[in-house]
Design a protein around this nucleic acid. Structure first.
Length: 819
RNA sequence: GCCCGGAUGGCGAAAUCGGCAAACGCGAUGGUCUCAAACACCAUUGCCCGCGAGGGCUUGCGGGUUCGAUUCCCGCUCCGGGCACCA
């Protein structure tokens, strides 16, 4: 009886081998060309889920393929181990987040290993390691010195559920918290910020240099939201001193300004409000401040309740007319100058407001004939605009800008939607911000030699909305590094996105005790050649990491030439179940363990590779009562395929009486397989690479049934399968080549000439309909094609005696006869 | 509202540069092996008409360009995602 494939034993055996033999450990001085492959390091939420499996299967395929191609592949892994879930669990159970987190890391690490994904574990990085904390804090201090970290009072997003401040990026479009789903409210607190806006232009421009999915780049462009325009002053009527500064992208429409609007929080509101309007304005401002950002920014509600007149007027500098000054909740203090010139004829919001408040509307751009809409925002000749009349938009904009600058009233100005990154979190389980507050010296950085500032273990976890550190006297009370007088520590911690903004740099030099990393070593490995992760990080993490790389390079901490961290990015599709993303919080996870325990890691990997294009979402079908789901059937099919490969490679395919070997040159077919799989690996078409392997396996199977010798072809099949299904191919290789290690073999070469077929099936069409198929030499010429085609009885029948009007021949595959 | 994707058999999908639509697999049906089952192996499997040979139709919908369109262009429908008073 032939020996069946023992999945469990084999996978365990090879995982142990890869752990101990160092195949995937590399040093900075490795003579091979470097290749840095990185999967986004995970938040440790426990055992892996199918999203991890998919991510690390793709990543592992690249690592193994590049290694076979002769690269020194840097393949590190770590854990984004600070964060809310561990702390929330601590509040619930009273158990410190560290043991909780460490246990979950151990679980996740085990399932990653059971997947057979290989990493240089010597380089493991965990956000909550004291050494990692040290260097995160060190980097924060460098940002502080460079003026890129600062503190200010700011209205911040406060989540009542999480009891903490959130970054803009963590607030959903509907104003709810990205994590808890609670409605976010505004609070005014003193917070630390990173000055990411200093890099807005670079973050925008350098997107062009990246080999990233277009849609991710577009999302980043929209998020940065650059707009060009003008800022200029409007004198307040009857007031020799005060002026209102406005921002506009349409200075060409300035003659159509019929009123001015300030944000309710604008500093001039008090001064501009006349006594008879005071109570109405006060009521309006109070009303607006009770609304959350969401309510305020939703266009619902009657527009005539959304603004109020201040009683003051300002002068439109273009035509000298007085225009009324209003407040409206749709004007935001945080963008531009917090004040706008309203041009209702060319802006729909202004139009609606003018309509509701009976304000005049003057068109300054001629709408096209038959224009039935209200505000016209398109191009057209300027009208009612004196010296701009007749000019098209672009010219009018330029002329208006020049005029503003000549008059000394204003100037060209670029505004960004991007805001500075709020990094303070009123949380315990994060990296402490290394700052001390001294009554005498203010905010003083903790000296480098006192790092890391570590949170104490003996804290009480309470849902207070402030970090438990605030109640820990031993942590809180300290002395000022400058004057040695009593002082207090900052008790906020950093947003966990700070940790993930530089971990990929630390991986290059993870044990450095003198610096976060050696720039020379970083220069060898970075930028990351292939970064893989979920689309959900398209904006936040990827923008922050780009900012960190640029800032660190400018400070000389990272190599100066390193302008971008991730040269190529691949965003894998989501796995959905029942229409929503598979996630722990939705309770619709399908743990991989049950597949590891049955069909094995290779079969599960093969399934993820085969099921569809890696970038596409996949719907995991739910279990029906008792029977296997469609998804489980697909996974079983992958396991069956690997058993077939096993029998083929161990010589156990049963011979079939009277079977004859397929015709065709097996050597050519083998070259074609290598060509196909090589190309598919490079273009992220793993599903078709698997299909090609299956097709080739079917071919070899027929040979085996006929008893043909096919050893070289089987070896090649194992080699091209090795990055996809590493365990079974390693085992088979070792059995076929004693002491051999398939993952140390070279990727098979192919001869392009041999990879193409000798003969082709020529399709003969009459009027575009297929009428015949003829086997021809691959190097056939047009004349011969036409001759063969016209000689075909089926073609003659279709022509029915008619003379062809035209014959199109595309050697060697197609002839179309037009009658 | 704006921007970006997507739609192909019963299901997951393929067709890479405008040239055989449905590769590969799942499921299904019939058969071989078996006491039986599982495994394995063989065959069929887009839809319609036809005993058959064969014929017709088919890539969300409607047009267009072309000898030829799943692929390019115009106009829609539906689904998914991102952004959304950003002046």
């Amino acid at each position: 009886m032939a020996e069946a494939y023992d999945v469990q034993d084999t996978e365990r055996k090879w995982q142990a081998r890869w752990r101990t033999d160092g195949t995937y450990q590399v040093e900075a001085d490795d003579p091979r060309p470097p290749f840095y492959s990185l999967c986004m390091y995970p938040y440790p939420s426990g055992a892996a889920h199918q999203g991890h499996v998919r991510n690390y299967t793709f990543g592992d395929l690249i690592v193994r393929h590049r290694t076979m191609q002769g690269y020194a592949v840097l393949t590190p892994m770590g854990f984004d181990s600070f964060g809310l879930p561990a702390e929330n669990a601590a509040i619930k159970t009273g158990v410190h987040p560290r043991p909780f987190t460490d246990a979950r890391i151990a679980e996740l690490k085990e399932s990653i290993e059971r997947l057979g994904a290989v990493y240089d574990w010597r380089r493991e990085v965990r956000s909550h390691d004291p050494e990692y904390i040290r260097w995160t804090q060190w980097i924060f201090l460098r940002f502080l010195e460079a003026g890129l970290a600062y503190r200010k009072h700011a209205p911040v997003n406060w989540c009542p559920g999480c009891q903490t401040v959130l970054a803009n990026e963590q607030v959903n479009a509907d104003g709810t918290c990205d994590r808890s789903g609670d409605v976010v409210v505004k609070r005014n607190l003193e917070q630390w910020f990173f000055k990411i806006t200093d890099y807005a232009d670079q973050l925008l421009d350098d997107l062009a240099t990246l080999d990233w999915p277009e849609r991710v780049k577009t999302m980043q462009r929209n998020w940065i939201g650059r707009s060009e325009g003008a800022e200029f002053d409007l004198r307040v009527t009857g007031d020799g001193e005060r002026a209102i500064r406005v921002f506009t992208t349409r200075p060409d429409t300035s003659f159509g300004m019929t009123y001015v609007v300030l944000a309710p929080e604008h500093p001039l509101v008090g001064e501009l409000t006349t006594p008879e309007h005071r109570s109405a304005v006060a009521a309006f401002v109070a009303e607006v401040s009770t609304h959350s950002e969401v309510e305020r920014q939703s266009a619902e509600g009657p527009i005539n309740k959304r603004g109020v007149f201040t009683g003051s007027y300002a002068v439109n500098p273009f035509n000298g007319q007085d225009v009324p000054v209003y407040l409206a909740d749709y004007v935001l203090m945080g963008y531009g100058t917090g004040a706008i010139m309203a041009v209702p004829a060319e802006d729909q919001r202004d139009w609606d407001f003018a309509d509701a408040y009976d304000l005049p509307i003057v068109r300054t751009v001629q709408p096209p004939d038959g224009w039935a809409g209200k505000a016209y925002t398109g191009d057209g000749p300027a009208i009612n605009s004196r010296w701009l009349d007749g000019l098209e938009k672009a010219e009018a904009v330029t002329k208006a800008l020049d005029w503003l600058e000549d008059q000394g009233i204003g100037q060209r100005k670029v505004n960004f939607r991007l805001r500075d990154w709020l990094l303070s979190r009123q949380r315990f389980w994060g990296c402490p911000i290394p700052v001390i507050y001294c009554p005498e010296h203010g905010a003083v950085p903790v000296p480098d030699h006192e790092l890391p500032v570590l949170a104490p273990d003996d804290v009480e976890f309470r849902p207070t909305g402030e970090s438990p550190l605030r109640f820990h006297e031993g942590f809180l009370r300290t002395t000022c590094p400058v004057c040695r007088q009593p002082a207090t520590r900052e008790t906020d911690t950093m947003d966990t996105f700070v940790d993930s903004s530089w971990y990929y740099l630390r991986f290059a030099d993870p044990h450095n005790t003198e610096a976060p990393f050696d720039p020379a070593i970083v220069a060898r490995w970075l930028p990351v050649d292939q970064y893989i992760g979920g689309i959900e990080h398209a904006i936040l993490h990827l923008m922050y990491a780009r900012f960190f790389t640029k800032a660190l390079a400018d400070m000389g901490v990272a190599p100066k030439e390193l302008r971008e961290p991730f040269a190529r990015l691949f965003t894998q599709g989501m796995i959905r179940m029942g229409g929503s993303k598979m996630s722990k919080s939705k309770g619709n996870l399908v743990a991989p363990a049950k597949y590891f325990d049955t069909v094995g890691a290779d079969a599960l990997r093969l399934f993820h590779l085969f099921v569809g294009p890696p970038a596409d979402d996949f719907d995991w079908s739910e279990q029906t009562d008792g029977g296997p789901s469609a998804t489980d059937s697909l996974i079983d099919g992958c396991a069956r395929y690997l058993n077939r490969v096993w029998r083929l490679a161990t010589g156990e395919v049963a011979p079939v009486d009277g079977a004859t070997a397929p015709t065709g040159d097996l050597e050519r077919a083998t070259h074609a397989l290598v060509a196909k799989v090589s190309e598919d690996y490079d273009r992220w078409s793993y599903n078709t690479a698997v299909a090609a392997c299956m097709e080739f396996t079917n071919l070899l199977h027929k040979h085996a049934q006929a008893g043909t010798v096919i050893d070289d072809a089987v070896d090649t099949l194992l080699l091209v399968l090795a990055p996809m299904t590493p365990h079974v191919t390693a085992e088979l290789w070792e059995r076929r080549h004693p002491d051999g290690h398939i993952h140390a073999e070279a990727w098979p070469a192919f001869d392009a000439a041999l990879a193409s077929a000798l003969t082709e099936t020529m399709i003969v069409q009459v009027n575009g309909k297929v009428r015949d198929r003829i086997e021809v030499d691959a190097d056939i010429d047009e004349a011969e094609m036409e001759r063969l085609a016209l000689a075909s009885p089926k073609v003659q029948a279709a022509l029915d005696g008619a003379e062809p009007r035209k014959v199109i021949a595309r050697p060697p595959r197609l002839v179309n006869i037009v009658r």
